[in-house]
Design a protein around this nucleic acid. Structure first.
Lengths: 208, 208
DNA sequence: ACCTGAACACCGTTCAAGT
DNA sequence: ACCTGAACACCGTTCAAGT
């Protein structure tokens, strides 16, 4: 018999995204995924040793969506901002999965690609030695951490943040909290501002 | 009969920390928590409507460990660094739970306390209006995001990061990757450096 | 080579019943 | 007022059996 392989691991990953993006992470069960693929739940174990490795494949796919985009811009600063924007946009497309990055322990091939790209830009800015490693780590923490927090659970996240702004009883925050869209806009501006600030620091450290 | 209440919600939170800190988040089941408290699993529902609200209470407790510490330092910069260090240290004490912040949707009373404290320091630096909101958001994203990534899954996280540093094939990273402790040190330095850098930006924005 | 389906050892949660 | 315990509707995963 030996049928030609009808399903690839990537088929399961795509179907899993369909479920998670539309119904949330808790709706992704092996049985639900099997149903969507027209296959028994236990058939998935031909392709992934367990559910965790399926999730890791999904997270690596998200990073791949960022890693496969060539960063745009004529200067290291612009290319760093471009990488940062691409990571954020990729997570933003899968808000129900972004939070899973914080739990993941696997190492991601596409994460390495992004890391190498960032390091190349930091070298282009003139950084070496411990300055290079330290600034790389600052960027990684900010880009990943902030993106996960800002994109996870979108759009509810911004409604929640809007409510929190109101509780603060600070006139400036009241103003921003008029719509969840305002909160999202200022959060996006804060992201770009902080990355740009970190690039400033790179330039100063390179002069030493 | 009407026994005096033998258990408070906070008793369950403490017992839940015992389980999570020692055995990991997946070991925290309602049955396991009931066993540890010498009570049927379903008795927990007298105190918490569901498991998610128990987890929210645990996360708020972690933030409380940071919020209850008066920030030290004579300048806004030092007090901001102190707040940031306290948040990180509090998460660091519960590495198996840190990642859950990225999934949480609740709003946390102790989070508000920390927010108010940060805003007071940003005002002391001379920030108002959109600058204030934007910088606040940059700090929040960096402090929370970075702390979650750096403390979640400790100490395994740093072993994983060490392995990734080796894969990068960059001499500077090789050097840092000699021990997981070196990676942890440089990550901590990067955290302080980035916060300090953001304070620099506040000072510049205040001059405009 | 790949898939099926019964089965196992769990989950969170509800609800009637106890004291 | 608080706790018990049976029960329900699920989970992820294993493994012998099918084709």
């Amino acid at each position: 018999m030996s049928e030609p392989r009808t399903h690839t691991p990537s088929d399961f990953v795509q179907a899993a995204f369909d479920i998670v993006d539309a119904q949330g992470l808790t709706s992704l069960t092996m049985r639900a995924l099997g149903d969507r693929m027209g296959v028994d739940a236990t058939a998935i174990y031909r392709h992934f040793p367990n559910k965790e490795s399926l999730l890791d494949a999904m997270l690596d796919f998200i990073l791949g969506e960022a890693a496969n985009l060539e960063p745009t811009g004529a200067t290291p600063r612009d290319r760093i901002l471009s990488v940062a924007a691409n990571v954020r946009a990729a997570m933003r497309r899968h808000p129900n999965l972004a939070g899973a990055f914080a739990q993941a322990t696997g190492d991601f091939a596409n994460g390495l690609t992004i890391s190498r790209r960032m390091i190349a830009e930091l070298r282009a800015l003139g950084l070496t030695g411990e300055h290079l490693v330290r600034m790389y780590q600052s960027f990684e923490g900010y880009i990943l951490g902030s993106s996960v927090f800002d994109t996870g659970g979108y759009p509810e996240t911004f409604t929640i943040r809007q409510a929190r702004y109101r509780y603060l009883n600070e006139p400036e925050f009241d103003e921003v909290a008029r719509t969840a869209g305002d909160v999202e806009r200022v959060t996006g501006e804060a992201y770009v501002l902080a990355i740009s600030t970190l690039v400033d620091t790179c330039e100063e450290l390179a002069k030493l």
